[in-house]
Design a protein around this nucleic acid. Sequence first.
DNA 1: ACTTCGCATATTGCATTCAATATGCGATTT
DNA 2: AAATCGCATATTGAATGCAATATGCGAAGT
Lengths: 223, 223
Amino acid sequence: MTVATSIPRLSLHDEVVVRLRDLIIRGELLPNERLGERELCERFEISRTPLREALKVLAAEGLVELLQHRGARVATLTRADVQHMFEVMASLEALSGELAAARITEEQLAEIDGLHAAMLEAYRVRDLPVYFNWNQAIHERIIIASGNPVLREVYQGLSARIRRARYAANTSEERWAAAVREHEAVLGALHARDAAGLAAILRDHLHKKCEVVLAHLATDERF
Amino acid sequence: MTVATSIPRLSLHDEVVVRLRDLIIRGELLPNERLGERELCERFEISRTPLREALKVLAAEGLVELLQHRGARVATLTRADVQHMFEVMASLEALSGELAAARITEEQLAEIDGLHAAMLEAYRVRDLPVYFNWNQAIHERIIIASGNPVLREVYQGLSARIRRARYAANTSEERWAAAVREHEAVLGALHARDAAGLAAILRDHLHKKCEVVLAHLATDERF
DNA sequence: ACTTCGCATATTGCATTCAATATGCGATTT
DNA sequence: AAATCGCATATTGAATGCAATATGCGAAGT
């Protein structure tokens, strides 16, 4: 028997997919930024083959755009894209709420309560980046509690593509307060196992978020 | 000015993605079937590089599974997978119905009427493959009429992965008749621009379809 | 006879090489 | 002087070659 000192590590191209996706989601690679193969190969210290495979995957996920003989760029979002993605995500969130309210376990509920408390603390000290992360964590836990991995997968895919836009629009103090109140309602509905109520709250939550993001975006600017 | 004798044809890997996806969706490559690189390279008369890029993309789409050093296989679906995918698709269909009822144009409505008539004719002569195709075409038109390309994209992705299972379960004469009646209701709600009604009908339609597919599937068989 | 170990083979993962296309600069022409 | 054409260069697309890992068969041992 072999002792797996380093559990069968990801293949290089998978590794690169993860690292590149992270760079894009975290905003270190900006929208519309050119992704030269040479440059990225040096950065990751790999050859072009696994890099190119990774770029194809990220293109399939919608995070990068590939242009014939002109390389890859970080994908940008138009206003319409943002609207369409929120429209779909609102439905998916509603579904996740409906399912989670019915299926969530006490352990999962307790964990979310903990995350919520942490988020409130971040709000109290007005630490937006930390607040944002707890916020995302809560929504992810609700999706997990829905017990539907396909739902999670699809939601995460859209969420990753739009994350920058969501974060960038987190500005208004009063909207922030409203979002916190909405989160209180989410927790309430979860505890009450109110499927229909939670679905409605989450759907509404995302619709409002969409408006905020669009308002923050100049008419034909692209994210 | 150049006359595009052959419109800037797709790159090789994109071509291969399309052809391979088609082979899988149409069932010519069966679930769990091994996809040897050598074999596929000869089939498509290409080298391994674009083939491997294509396999990565299809794996990202969920149509194939990649195993470390053991090549690619056509992805299989468990009962749970089928349930989860239908759960998500039911929500997406409901959303598409809601939006389409509000946004559909007269032209689009007329086109769907035509497709519906063609589908009824296929039903009359009990031509299941043709019926199935018209059926899929109608749902696609409704999604298009929803005016949300992201919704379409996500739905198509799931639809492709589950298409084999849907088709394989198309057996019962009475269920077929019921499905036709449900489609009448869909058309009715569309003409009436009844957003909530159409959403409900489509959601229910998919829930029923899910039951049929699951019933058709032995306990731990995989698609 | 059955199980296990080890080697040969085949296949995949990655690097490198060759070919095709786009971009940018300079020369030439009007 | 401005615009256009053509060539040099750089970058991407595809193919081949080399290294690493898994699979399968056979031999040896219990």
